[in-house]
Measured scan of single mutants.
Amino acid sequence: NITNLCPFDEVFNATRFASVYAWNRKRISNCVADYSVLYNFAPFFAFKCYGVSPTKLNDLCFTNVYADSFVIRGNEVSQIAPGQTGNIADYNYKLPDDFTGCVIAWNSNKLDSKVGGNYNYLYRLFRKSNLKPFERDISTEIYQAGNKPCNGVAGFNCYFPLRSYGFRPTYGVGHQPYRVVVLSFELLHAPATVCGPKKST
Results as ranks from 00 to 15, higher is better:
66 Y>K: 06
168 R>P: 04
56 K>V: 08
44 F>I: 09
111 L>I: 12
114 K>Y: 10
151 N>L: 11
87 N>I: 15
189 H>E: 15
60 L>I: 09
79 Q>V: 00
43 P>R: 07
74 G>Q: 10
148 K>S: 12
71 V>M: 03
167 F>S: 05
120 N>L: 09
144 Q>N: 11
175 H>L: 11
169 P>M: 05
27 R>G: 05
155 G>I: 05
153 V>F: 11
26 K>V: 12
151 N>G: 13
185 F>D: 03
151 N>F: 10
148 K>F: 10
40 N>I: 04
188 L>R: 13
181 V>K: 00
77 V>K: 04
93 Y>V: 02
18 A>W: 03
135 E>C: 04
81 A>D: 04
86 G>M: 03
127 R>W: 02
12 F>A: 04
22 A>M: 10
176 Q>R: 03
104 I>H: 00
71 V>D: 02
120 N>R: 13
159 Y>P: 11
195 C>H: 11
167 F>C: 02
101 G>M: 00
194 V>K: 11
132 K>A: 11
135 E>S: 07
145 A>K: 13
68 D>T: 01
97 D>V: 09
13 N>H: 03
6 C>R: 02
148 K>N: 12
59 D>T: 12
141 E>R: 09
73 R>V: 03
77 V>C: 03
123 Y>M: 08
85 T>N: 09
140 T>L: 09
60 L>Q: 10
84 Q>H: 06
78 S>D: 14
196 G>Y: 09
178 Y>I: 13
93 Y>C: 01
167 F>W: 04
126 F>I: 11
13 N>P: 00
177 P>K: 02
89 A>H: 03
52 V>Y: 05
34 D>S: 05
19 S>F: 01
143 Y>P: 07
51 G>R: 10
184 S>P: 00
27 R>C: 08
190 A>I: 08
188 L>A: 15
37 V>L: 13
3 T>F: 05
57 L>Y: 04
38 L>S: 02
168 R>T: 11
152 G>S: 11
24 N>E: 15
183 L>I: 09
197 P>H: 13
16 R>G: 07
111 L>N: 12
146 G>P: 07
33 A>M: 12
123 Y>L: 06
194 V>L: 10
95 L>V: 11
124 R>F: 03
122 L>D: 11
180 V>H: 00
2 I>L: 13
113 S>L: 04
22 A>L: 06
140 T>V: 09
55 T>P: 08
157 N>E: 14
71 V>I: 09
113 S>K: 03
73 R>L: 06
29 S>N: 11
70 F>I: 01
25 R>L: 01
133 P>F: 04
185 F>K: 00
49 C>A: 00
151 N>S: 13
70 F>M: 03
40 N>A: 11
140 T>R: 12
122 L>Y: 15
32 V>Y: 10
169 P>V: 03
165 Y>D: 05
69 S>H: 02
191 P>N: 15
179 R>G: 02
155 G>T: 10
190 A>N: 12
103 V>K: 00
158 C>N: 06
138 I>D: 13
64 N>G: 10
108 S>N: 04
118 N>R: 07
58 N>D: 11
52 V>W: 03
163 R>Y: 09
34 D>W: 04
164 S>F: 07
61 C>M: 08
109 N>T: 10
76 E>Q: 11
1 N>F: 05
39 Y>T: 14
162 L>G: 01
64 N>M: 09
93 Y>H: 02
141 E>D: 14
104 I>R: 00
81 A>Y: 01
162 L>N: 03
80 I>G: 02
102 C>I: 05
165 Y>T: 05
113 S>D: 05
136 R>W: 04
160 F>K: 15
184 S>Y: 09
6 C>Q: 04
10 E>W: 03
1 N>H: 08
32 V>L: 09
29 S>I: 07
16 R>I: 10
138 I>H: 09
5 L>A: 13
7 P>I: 07
97 D>S: 10
129 S>L: 06
5 L>C: 08
172 G>W: 08
160 F>V: 13
24 N>F: 01
86 G>V: 05
58 N>P: 13
60 L>D: 05
33 A>Y: 15
74 G>I: 01
103 V>M: 02
135 E>D: 08
153 V>A: 14
127 R>H: 05
75 N>C: 11
154 A>C: 09
107 N>F: 02
136 R>I: 05
86 G>W: 02
142 I>C: 08
108 S>L: 02
107 N>Y: 03
72 I>K: 00
90 D>Y: 05
43 P>N: 08
92 N>A: 02
106 W>M: 07
13 N>A: 02
81 A>P: 02
103 V>H: 00
122 L>V: 13
157 N>V: 05
64 N>R: 10
66 Y>R: 05
50 Y>E: 02
116 G>P: 10
154 A>S: 15
138 I>W: 07
132 K>I: 08
68 D>M: 01
145 A>V: 13
134 F>G: 13
10 E>H: 06
103 V>Y: 00
8 F>D: 02
51 G>Y: 00
1 N>A: 08
1 N>S: 08
44 F>W: 09
136 R>Y: 03
168 R>Q: 15
20 V>A: 06
10 E>G: 06
94 K>F: 00
128 K>L: 07
90 D>A: 08
35 Y>V: 11
7 P>D: 14
144 Q>T: 10
94 K>Q: 03
116 G>V: 08
92 N>S: 03
177 P>V: 03
16 R>W: 08
52 V>Q: 03
81 A>E: 06
58 N>Q: 12
120 N>C: 07
165 Y>M: 05
22 A>E: 14
34 D>L: 08
63 T>G: 09
139 S>L: 04
102 C>W: 00
143 Y>L: 11
196 G>F: 09
166 G>C: 09
14 A>F: 03
72 I>A: 04
86 G>L: 05
18 A>Y: 06
53 S>V: 09
63 T>E: 11
